[in-house]
Nucleic acid binder design. Structure first.
Length: 210
DNA sequence: CGGAAGATCCACT
DNA sequence: GTGGATCTTCCGA
C-alpha cells in the first residue's frame, strides 16, 4: 500500500561500488498480500565478484548457489550463512563478473510492529535492534531464500526511490566479517549513512568525509 | 563422499 | 570478550 516507484533495472546495472553507495536512502519494500513492510536502507557492502576473495563469485564460475550472481543486475541474491541467517543482496552490473551489494541494515519505516514481532521482540525497541544487521533485516522483513532470483523492479520485493544522500553524509569502511579474504578484506567497500543509529555496528570508518 | 568453514546473532561471563 | 547454535555449500581426495 505504498505509493512509491521501484528503481529501474538500469540503476542496478552499474558498478557494485556505485550501486552500494547510492542504495543508501532508498527504500526496500516487501509487499505481503496487501500489507507492506518497508525499511530505509542505511548500510550496504559491495562484493565485486571475480577476483574479490570476499565474494561468493570470486572464482569467476557460477555454482549451484551463486548462479543468480551471474544474471544481469536487478534481481535478489539470498543465501544462508552459518546455517541460521538469510542474507539479502542485490545483483549488480551485467552478467559477467558476479558482483552484488549486501544490504546490511535498514531503518524500519512501514509495518514496524510486525517487524518487531517477526524478530521475537516487543516494542518499543531502540534504534538498530530490529533491522540493524543483515540477518536481522531479513528476519524482520520476511526475506528468505524463497526470493532468491526475484526481480527487484516489480513484484513482491522491490527497491523504491527514496532519497539520494549527499557525499558528506556517507561513511566508508572495510567490510565486516571477511577476515579470510586476504587483501580484499581491507578494501573500502562498506557504506553507511554517517551517524545513523540503525547502522549495524560501530566500525573504524576509513574515510569519513565531512 | 567427508569435512571444514562460513558476508551472524545472542546469551553469558 | 567469548563461545555455541545450525546446516548448506563446495573443495579436495
Amino acid at each position: 500500500m505504498t505509493k512509491r516507484r521501484p528503481l529501474p533495472v538500469a540503476f542496478f546495472r552499474r558498478p557494485a561500488e556505485r550501486v552500494a553507495r547510492e542504495l543508501l536512502g532508498q527504500v526496500l519494500v516487501h509487499r505481503i498480500g496487501d500489507v507492506d513492510l518497508a525499511v530505509r536502507i542505511v548500510e550496504t557492502e559491495a562484493y565485486l565478484g571475480t577476483g574479490d576473495r570476499a565474494s561468493h563469485a570470486w572464482r569467476g564460475e557460477p555454482t549451484a548457489r551463486t548462479s543468480v550472481l551471474f544474471e544481469p543486475g536487478g534481481v535478489a541474491y539470498v543465501y544462508l550463512v552459518y546455517g541460521l541467517h538469510d542474507m539479502f543482496n542485490v545483483v549488480t552490473e551485467g552478467a559477467e563478473n558476479g558482483s552484488a551489494v549486501l544490504v546490511r541494515a535498514g531503518e524500519p519505516r512501514i509495518g514496524v510492529e510486525r517487524m518487531i514481532a517477526n524478530r521475537g521482540l516487543e516494542g518499543p525497541v531502540g534504534a538498530g535492534v530490529v533491522a540493524g544487521g543483515p540477518g536481522k533485516l531479513c528476519r524482520a522483513m520476511e526475506i528468505t531464500r524463497r526470493l532468491n532470483g526475484s526481480p527487484l523492479d516489480r513484484g513482491e520485493l522491490t527497491i523504491c526511490r527514496g532519497e539520494t544522500l549527499p557525499p558528506h553524509s556517507v561513511a566508508v569502511g572495510a567490510r565486516v566479517g571477511v577476515d579470510y579474504a586476504g587483501a580484499a578484506a581491507d578494501w573500502p567497500l562498506r557504506f553507511a549513512e554517517k551517524g545513523n543509529p540503525h547502522v549495524s555496528r560501530p566500525h573504524p570508518w576509513r574515510h569519513e568525509i565531512s
